[in-house]
């Protein structure tokens, strides 16, 4: 494949990765920003979203209706599970950062094992509602000026385009929620100073439960969206957690815009670097790139310099 089309293909693939990553990382960033805790079980909420998508879609007999139903049901269920975990466990830990890590590792074990017992060890697919292969053209400067042609292999599917669009829409909605609604105001107030917010009559405990649930629901939504491309598997949460964790830190703590930019950067660079190097070497370079961004800009891309 020629260099130009290859780069375009890798960028498109990177954009799909970035879209899903941004959605999931936004959830983690919300929890991290408002509650100041690392939720190690965040990846499992993503996994639960994917698994529930399979359950709902197969109960509804597959097809587009099943998928749409899953899109609505899975985030709600997962959000409720997460809110319940917050009220029963995290609240009693006073959101101590270190204890929360251990408790959410415990939660991770519990969710994985329950999924393994109820759903099994297989990777199961969900049929996308639509999935047309779209061959893409490329411009070439021939003798008579620019010419369009269809390079071998350069294509994307309609579903992948939909994922990019859906993620963008949800993130816009989240941004509107945070900046233009009362509940968003409460969250931002709690993020700035929990004690002060409490003093001003904001029900901080309920805000925490809501934030934790909302963060999990976003992860679950990302899970539902990805499952027609990848498959639902009970161990899929691990790598997703790490990637979204990285995105949140690179973006800068508590900055939604930073999170989205970082997701695009990491998703795209993962795709584009793979053009130039052998696959494993490309991964190593992408990994080190992340490390060096932080070494030279420890507060993240959009974060404020602390102290």
């Amino acid at each position: 494949m020629d260099f130009g089309p290859y780069l375009m293909l890798a960028s498109l693939e990177g954009a799909v990765t970035a879209a899903v990553l941004a959605l999931m990382a936004a959830g983690l960033s919300l929890v991290f920003g408002v509650m100041r805790v690392v939720n190690v079980a965040h990846g499992e909420f993503y996994m639960l979203g994917a698994v529930l998508a399979w359950v709902v879609a197969s109960m509804a007999g597959g097809g587009a209706a099943g998928f749409v139903l899953a899109l609505a049901v899975a985030p709600l269920v997962v959000g409720a599970v997460a809110a319940a975990a917050d009220v029963t466990v995290l609240k009693h830990l006073d959101y101590d950062p270190e204890r929360t890590i251990v408790a959410t590792i415990g939660l991770l074990y519990i969710l994985q094992q329950l999924t393994l017992m109820g759903y099994g060890p297989e990777a199961r697919p969900v049929e996308p509602p639509f999935n047309a292969r779209i061959a893409l053209p490329w411009v070439e400067w021939g003798q008579g000026g620019p010419q369009l042609y269809w390079p071998w292999g350069l294509s994307i599917t309609s579903y992948k385009l939909f994922v990019i669009g859906a993620a963008a829409a949800v993130l816009a909605g989240l941004w509107a929620l945070m900046t233009h609604t009362r509940i968003g105001l409460m969250m931002r107030a709690t993020q700035l100073d929990g004690e002060m917010a409490q003093a001003f009559g904001i029900p901080v405990e309920r805000v925490y439960a809501l934030v934790f649930g909302l963060g999990a629901a976003l992860a679950a939504l990302a899970g539902v969206l990805i499952v027609p491309i990848q498959q639902a598997h009970y161990l899929m949460g691990g790598d997703a957690l790490l990637l979204s964790f990285i995105v949140v830190i690179i973006g800068g703590l508590g900055s939604l815009a930073g999170t989205v930019i970082a997701a695009i950067l990491i998703g795209m660079s993962d795709g584009i670097i793979s053009v130039f190097f052998s696959p494993t070497l490309a991964k190593i370079i992408a990994t080190l790139l992340v490390a060096f961004v932080l070494v030279f800009r420890p507060e993240g891309l959009m974060g404020k310099r602390a102290r």
């Binding site: 830190i249 703590l253 490390a291 932080l294 070494v295 030279f296």
Partner: peptide, 26 residues
């Protein structure tokens, strides 16, 4: 390198270096 950072950034930098070591082994 990593001590230029602190807190969560330190966590990520060490995580990334470790991942690079793992991939290098492969």
């Amino acid at each position: 390198l990593a001590l230029r950072t602190a807190g969560v950034a330190f966590m990520i930098v060490t995580l990334m270096f470790s991942e690079a070591v793992y991939l290098t082994i492969l």
